[in-house]
Design a protein around this nucleic acid. Structure first.
Length: 417
RNA sequence: GGAGGGGUGCCCGAGUGGUUAAAGGGGACGGACUGUAAAUCCGUUGGCGACAGCCUACGUUGGUUCGAAUCCAACCCCCUCCA
């Protein structure tokens, strides 16, 4: 089709969110005509979300920014069953309390990105347990099950690939796509929701929902998927040594979050600026034209803008300043991650390897010793050669803290407390 | 229910009686080079430690043996084929 007329789809396409759409022209027309309600489903298996979900969060935000109404669908019902796809480790069944707690945590994340309320374009959060829990098997089969042909279901990638690899596929998993399709129909009925979005791996499930809506309710529903975001170097995005990069401050401080984006690979900067910030496209075009070390400026902008979305502008500026002092001045910023040790303990003197463990820069004494031996540890910017060298109150040089560094990027302040 | 195959460190995977804390790869971390990038090269990668060693570890529990990830038995789990 020619360029979309609606601001929403224009943003989706121009910023790199669009992978596939069931009916681009139809959706564009709907978006031009009025407020479109669209949703994305999220698991509630954890009390927060990580950057792996950020693409989906951003498209909900763009919906709202361009005058539409986003719905966050929590998989309270499906989580109770346990999403069986993916890994084969047996999942612990979550209790209702766990799920409620996780939902509350996830809502905190969304509160940063979306405006919730009762207005026409205010976001709402709904839980599919509200309808899935109450489903009666036989009536459900008769209403919904009759519209699914096994022949067709077997042709979907999610199923087909499993069968081709001769991996087991349980009946439960097989039903998952039906439940997800039904969610869409239910949301269309309850919330007048006509659009489901998701990652490209959700395409089949989304299409099923679109078709089910047409067959049961004769409704025009739309589906849209985003591309799988990987790093230019091929790795999965959002994985670090510490695990996932979480979006809530408790599990990933704004400083660490800023650092995550600051360390983006050169080749990803432009793409990430488009996806994960709301800077104007011409500004992004300018930034990504910087080359060599100049790209570092673009990375700082990316870090600050992305952090501002997740943690607020103030926290982002603070993180940027902490990074500037630490990395560009080689100084010690008082806002670095910190731990405290009892003053009395420091008075006795703490061996270097213990100090490193206390600073959480190593998981065990052995690891700390190895780090020191390989020349990776600095205390107050001085290399430490002896793993048993003692550090104490006299080393509280800056801001009543000892600066302990592992490698060039990881710094912790050890305070007397 | 029957027959066969398999469960090894963060992951994959070699190892079928001793020199095995366990090859190799991946990942991760540290160093060099740089730009807090990528690529490349080097190193490290169970815990404790007075650095002499000690402890824990190859699905689980027992057994054989001077000695077991390796042999035996039972059990648990996974896969394939048959019913």
């Amino acid at each position: 089709m020619s360029a979309p007329k609606s601001a929403f789809l224009a943003a989706m396409i121009d910023r790199g969110f669009m992978h596939q759409c069931t009916d681009l022209e139809g959706l564009d027309a709907a978006a031009m005509k009025g407020v479109v309600t669209g949703y994305i489903g999220f698991d509630c298996t954890a009390p927060s979300l990580h950057v792996g979900s950020l693409v989906q969060i951003m498209i909900l935000r763009w919906m709202q920014q361009t005058g539409h109404r986003p719905i966050v669908l929590m998989g309270g019902g499906t989580t109770k069953v346990g999403d069986p796809s993916g890994k084969d480790e047996s999942r612990r069944l979550l209790t209702d309390d766990d799920i409620a707690g996780n939902m509350a945590g996830i809502k905190q994340v969304f509160a940063k990105f979306l405006k919730f309320g009762n207005g026409p374009t205010d976001a709402v959060m709904v839980n599919n347990a509200d309808w899935l829990d109450k489903l009666a098997y036989i009536p459900f089969l008769r209403e919904v099950g009759r519209h699914f042909s096994i022949n067709r279901m077997l042709s979907f990638d999610s199923v087909k690939l499993r069968l081709e690899r001769e991996q087991p596929l349980t009946f439960l998993e097989f039903n998952y796509m039906i439940l997800q399709a039904y969610d869409f129909v239910e949301l269309a009925r309850r919330q007048d929701c006509v659009l489901q979005m998701g990652g490209s791996d959700q395409w089949g499930n989304i299409v099923n929902g679109v078709e089910l809506g047409r067959r049961i309710d004769d409704r025009a529903l739309y589906g849209l998927t985003t591309p799988l975001i990987t790093l230019a170097s091929g790795a999965k995005m959002g994985k670090t040594a510490q695990g996932a990069v979480w979006l809530n401050a408790d599990q990933c401080s704004p400083y660490d979050y800023w650092q995550f984006w600051r360390n983006t690979e050169d080749a990803d900067v432009g793409r990430f600026l488009r996806l994960f910030t709301e800077l104007p496209l011409d500004e992004i075009a300018r930034l990504e034209r910087l080359d060599g070390a100049g790209l570092n400026e673009a990375k700082k902008v990316l870090a600050t803008e992305a952090t501002a979305l997740a943690h607020g502008r103030d926290a982002a500026m603070q993180a940027a300043e902490t990074a500037r002092v630490t990395f560009e001045q080689g100084g010690t910023a008082s806002d670095l991650p910190s731990v405290s040790l009892p003053r009395a303990k420091l008075a006795e003197g703490v061996p270097a390897f213990e100090l490193v463990v206390a600073a959480k820069l190593a998981a065990s004494n052995g690891e700390a010793r190895r780090l020191i031996r390989s020349g990776g540890i600095k205390v107050n910017d001085q290399a430490v050669g002896d793993e048993t060298a003692k550090f104490g109150l006299e080393h509280l040089v800056v801001d009543d803290a000892i600066k302990v560094s592992a490698g060039r990027k990881r710094h912790t302040l050890v305070r007397a407390g």
